[in-house]
Structure formats: structure tokens, C-alpha cells
Design a protein around this nucleic acid. Structure first.
Lengths: 219, 219
DNA sequence: TGTACATCAGTGAACGCGCGTTCACTGATGTAC
DNA sequence: TGTACATCAGTGAACGCGCGTTCACTGATGTAC
């Protein structure tokens, strides 16, 4: 009742943040506006001062979550890590970590919404697609480290590798999450297999290249 | 109003079938019992003659869908296909086909429920996990064709390949489905990349093995 | 084999409840003078 | 700078609606004799 414009903006963000977490955890249909507003710290009537419908909120959530995921991808690379790990390895290790698996509320938005997005509004689907394309572009740059600097015409091949990488990482993350409660050991195995297949095999490929010896610092 | 036991069993199956399709299409929370019963050809009151709750139906749906998926996997291999394709290739080609992508109602149950299962009841999660393990076992046998008959101690390695394969196939299928409406070209690209990464690279590996020439019938 | 009756799948109305959305109201913010 | 007032974020009650579930009832099925 009587709130500064700045405060109103902060409150708006609180609603989006609460929705992002709750939607990922329980699905869009599994969360009511009253509960959502309560989580954000308000009563339900105020919702329509900020969004014209639940659908509009969903669109905003997808857009925000995809942007935050892009941010997270970049941030992973700036974290302290063993000097002998490549960007690629660090990304895979993060994505397929138990921490990321358990953090459904805040993890990769693609994994969080991939199964719901086809049922959401047109705008939400559009934002999701834009975000996914951005993620593919980001990874396309990243996979370059797996091979010698590629010629321009190899860019297409690198994009294929990036898409393939994302499919495998996300698939492993989702499967790992799906059995986590019922079979924690299987859940961990899936993560480990994913890491090994992506990082392990990339190292194998490097070390197996004819005439190339495994450098000690590459371990 | 007065129905033979056999008819009642058929009706039961009709309810499960309708639920399986609707749940995959719109999610468990997105389908009400009244609509569900109508799709199965009945009025909503009769539901509780067959299930003690919606949750019990969900458990039955997961169990049934996982079993049908296993059936489907086996059936794919018995379909007519070019004689020079391996079982592995046929499975990948089916899984990453546009037909399978578009057939959300009846396709792979793992892909259909993977994002929802962690929110479902304990029993449903248990059935899902059992089915996923069965799928891993099935694929473990299948990936053997990618390499020479493995020694017993290589079984672990084949299981890893199978899990990795499923992650990649399912990841590609889900991503392809998620952007299908908003960007059909990207959706198709994801499928194609997945097929190429799995089947293409396996052929490359085979053909690249030192001193081994590509056999014509292997194409 | 024929008759009487218990069973139970299916009907359709009703239950309380939470959903998304609307609305009259409040009162601090922030603008106009 | 001080005063008067329009704005609008937030409140909380209310709306119609569809949800999951319950229930009295129907009547063909299938069993007991």
C-alpha cells in the first residue's frame, strides 16, 4: 500500500524469481498464483498489477530463466578450477555434477522447462528457442578446444558437436534426476557415465591421436 | 449399467490408454478425471470403480507405458529394414525419426515422463526406475554390435555405452520436441545431428579402424 | 434347466476446495502548482 | 519550499469454474438353489 517505483520493481523481480523456482520444482500447472505470491511475500490480489495473466508471467519466467542460464554457463568458466582442465571439461563437470542435479530450482533452464515448453504459450516457446540457440552458439565456441583451431568451414561441424554435447548432457541430467529418489545409485551412475563419455572420451581421442603422447598436465 | 467381467477389463484398459496419451500430451496435472473418462468413453463417476485415486491411475499408467515402450523397442528390430543396417542403427533411426518426435502420445515413455516422474508418487517412481533399468539392459545387448563380441569383463563398458546412448537419444528427442512449433528447422536439425553423431560416428569408427576396409554391405 | 437374488460397473448429481481472475478499497509515492 | 491531489502497488474478499472425490441409484451379469 503505497510503494516507491524502485520498490515495485524489486517486488516484480521477487515474483518472477519465486515463480521460476516453483515452476521448475512442480511444473507450471502445479503452482497456483496464491501460493506463488505468498512465496514472493505478497497477497494474491497484487499479481495483476504486474502481469496481465498467468501466461504472461510464464513467458517472463522462461525469458528470465534462459538468460540466467546463459549467465551461469559463462560464470562456470570464471570459477577457480584446476589449471589443467579445459573450458569444455569444466562445463561438463559442472553440468553433470550432483550439485547441479539436486538444484532443480536454479539449474539449467533448458533442462527445467524442456518437457513443458511445447505446452506453453507461443511467446514462451519463442523465448525458449532463442535461449536454446544462444546456448548452442556458446557451446559451439567451447567445443573448439577439443580439436585444433578449426578452419572456418569446420564451423558447421563444431555446431554439430555442440548440439550433440548438449543433448547428451541434458539427457543425462534429466535421467539422473528422474530416478534420484527411487534409486540414488543409478542416478549417480548416470551422471558418472555421462561425464566419462564426454570428458573421458575426449581425452582418449586426444591421447590416441597418432604420434601424439599424452601430456602429463592434460590429466 | 450391468457389464460383463471381460467388458469391464476392456473398459479398464481403455481408461489407462486414454490416460497414457493425455498425460503425455498435457502432463498429469493438465488432465482432469472428467475429461479423461470422457475420452475413454465413460462418465466420471465410474472412475473409482477401477482406481482408488488419480495417483493410483498414474502409477498404473507409468507401469503400462514403460512396458509398452520395451515392447516397441523390440518391435522396431522386427520391422522390415534394409539388410545392411545393424540393430543399433535401426533403433537410432527410429528413435530420432520425425515420426517418433511427432508422436508424443505413443512414443518412448521415458521421454514422455522423465521430467514429471520426480513429482509423482513413490510407486510411480519405482515403476519408472524398473523400466529404465530394463531399457538400459536391452540397449546394453544392442550396443554390442558396434564392436567385436566383447569379453565378459567388457560388459560394464557396454552398459556405459548403452546409458550414454540413451542419454543422447532422449536428449535429442526432447530438445527437438521442445522447439518443434517455434522453429521446425532447428527441430529437424537436432534430430539429424543426433542421428549423425550416433550412427554416423559409429560407422566412421568402424571404417577408421586401422587396416580395416569399409565393407560394402556395411553401408 | 429355470428362477431368485447378490454383485458391481457405470451413471450423473453433488461435495468442498483451490484455481485464475476481478474488484473496491487503502495509503504512501511522487507530481503539479 | 510547501500544499493539494492524482497515481498505482498492494490488500483481501469475492467471482465462476473445474478439480478430485463421494454417493445414491440403475440394471445387466453371473451365481446359488
Amino acid at each position: 500500500m503505497g510503494v516507491s517505483k524502485q520498490q515495485a520493481e524489486e517486488n516484480h523481480r521477487a515474483m518472477v524469481d519465486a515463480a521460476t523456482k516453483l515452476f521448475r520444482e512442480r511444473g507450471v500447472d502445479g503452482v497456483g498464483l496464491a501460493e506463488l505470491m505468498k512465496h514472493a511475500g505478497f497477497t494474491q490480489g497484487g499479481f495483476y498489477n504486474h502481469f496481465k495473466s498467468k501466461d504472461a508471467l510464464v513467458t517472463k519466467v522462461i525469458e528470465t530463466a534462459m538468460a540466467e542460464t546463459a549467465e551461469e554457463f559463462r560464470e562456470v568458466l570464471s570459477r577457480p578450477a584446476p589449471v589443467d582442465t579445459t573450458c569444455f571439461e569444466r562445463q561438463v563437470d559442472y553440468y553433470l555434477s550432483e550439485g547441479h542435479r539436486d538444484d532443480i530450482e536454479c539449474g539449467c533452464a533448458v533442462a527445467g522447462f524442456v518437457c513443458e515448453v511445447a505446452r506453453l504459450g507461443e511467446e514462451a516457446q519463442s523465448r525458449f528457442t532463442t535461449g536454446l540457440n544462444a546456448a548452442f552458439s556458446f557451446l559451439t565456441e567451447l567445443v573448439a578446444v577439443r580439436a585444433p583451431p578449426a578452419k572456418p568451414e569446420k564451423r558447421r561441424r563444431r555446431r554439430e558437436q555442440a548440439i550433440s554435447l548438449y543433448c547428451q548432457m541434458m539427457g543425462a541430467l534429466l535421467l539422473s534426476r528422474s530416478v534420484r529418489i527411487a534409486d540414488g545409485a543409478l542416478s549417480n551412475e548416470i551422471l558418472a557415465v555421462g561425464r566419462n563419455a564426454l570428458v573421458g572420451s575426449s581425452k582418449q581421442k586426444l591421447s590416441r591421436r597418432p604420434g601424439m603422447k599424452r601430456k602429463p598436465k592434460r590429466r
